[in-house]
Amino acid sequence: SFFPHNLFLQAYAKFSGAPLTVNTISNSWRAPKGDVPVLISDDIVISQPAKYNADYELSAKQGADTLAYIALLEEKLLPALLHTFWVEAENYCSVTRPWFASRIAFPLRLYLPGKMSREALNRILLTRGGPPLCSLTEVEAQIYRDAKECLNLLSKRLGTSQFFFGHTPTTLDAFVFGFLAPIYKVCFPRVQLQEHLKQLPNLCRFCDDILTCYFRLTVSGHSPAGQDTADANLQKLTQLVNKESNLIEKMDDNLRKSPQHPPRKLTTLKLAAGGEQSSPLNRLSP
């Protein structure tokens, strides 16, 4: 998914053990508020799973740190994330728009990606486009500087720990994962932010660990079950090819061992005088 909030909800549900069913729809107007993603429990829209808590072991200070880092992500990293996916022309035309259009029903696929791109640009300009940043180029440069600074702070805070507050994932881990995973995994033509993220190995390892342990995805992005299926299919195909090769070899051996008959001589027709073919009809004629 390209939506940080969507990934946050999925990760939080897995961290807290909340049962979660993902329903994919091609028409966002079918959602209760006309927008996706949305989390529903007992026909009520909620912000996160109720009765399930991934932060019950955190202290008051750690809870305050969680809120502070979430605010930092929203302010510093989100604008660059929106720009990378929805405003950067090459990324939008080659990755984002085709991906969304392929999953949206006609005719909404012709309208919604462009609408979301315009909304992303408007949000960036409204939140970060004030003086002294007058041009879009200056705004872009600033939001990427802020995003890289945010990534550096996250890397320093994580350090060598598995998660941000020890060995147990919490809300902050789910939130950070929701922001970092799309940047880390999506293959873009323009990878300014992705290149900086890959220079921070502890954040990359953080994403890989969550994908492997909680989403059962390998570093390459495939589930072990899917990889096993692919390997099994490849093995069956290899066996089939080997059987066909053995059959062809046996046929060749049989042809070589079979008795060779000399070629038959073609009978020639003798022509009568005058160039006409000698035939019983000619012989019976007076």
Rank of each mutant, 00 (worst) to 15 (best):
L112N: 05
L112M: 08
P113H: 10
S117E: 12
S117C: 13
R118E: 07
R118L: 08
L121R: 11
N122R: 15
N122I: 05
R123E: 13
I124N: 12
T127K: 14
R128Q: 15
R128T: 07
G129T: 05
G129L: 03
G129N: 03
G129F: 02
G130D: 14
P131V: 08
P131Q: 11
P131L: 13
S135L: 10
L136K: 06
T137K: 08
T137C: 04
E138K: 01
E138M: 09
E138R: 01
V139D: 04
V139K: 00
V139R: 00
A141H: 03
Q142L: 07
I143C: 01
I143V: 14
Y144A: 07
R145E: 15
R145V: 08
D146Y: 03
K148D: 11
K148N: 12
E149C: 06
E149T: 08
E149N: 09
C150S: 11
C150F: 02
L151G: 04
L151K: 02
L151E: 07
N152E: 15
N152W: 09
L153T: 09
L154P: 00
S155I: 00
S155L: 01
S155R: 00
R157I: 04
L158G: 04
G159A: 06
G159S: 06
G159C: 07
S161W: 01
S161M: 08
S161E: 10
F164Y: 14
G166A: 06
G166R: 01
G166H: 04
G166D: 07
G166K: 02
H167M: 04
T168S: 10
P169V: 08
P169C: 12
T171W: 05
L172H: 08
D173A: 04
D173G: 02
A174V: 03
A174S: 07
F175G: 00
F175P: 00
F177Q: 01
F177M: 03
F177N: 01
F177H: 00
G178E: 13
G178I: 06
F179V: 02
L180N: 02
L180P: 01
L180C: 05
A181I: 05
P182F: 11
Y184K: 02
Y184R: 08
K185F: 12
V186P: 03
V186Q: 15
V186L: 10
C187M: 07
F188N: 05
F188R: 00
P189G: 11
P189Y: 09
P189A: 14
R190D: 11
R190Q: 12
V191F: 12
Q192A: 14
Q192K: 12
L193N: 05
L193K: 03
Q194T: 09
Q194G: 10
Q194K: 10
Q194Y: 05
Q194D: 05
E195H: 13
E195Y: 10
E195T: 14
H196Q: 13
H196K: 11
L197D: 06
K198I: 05
Q199T: 04
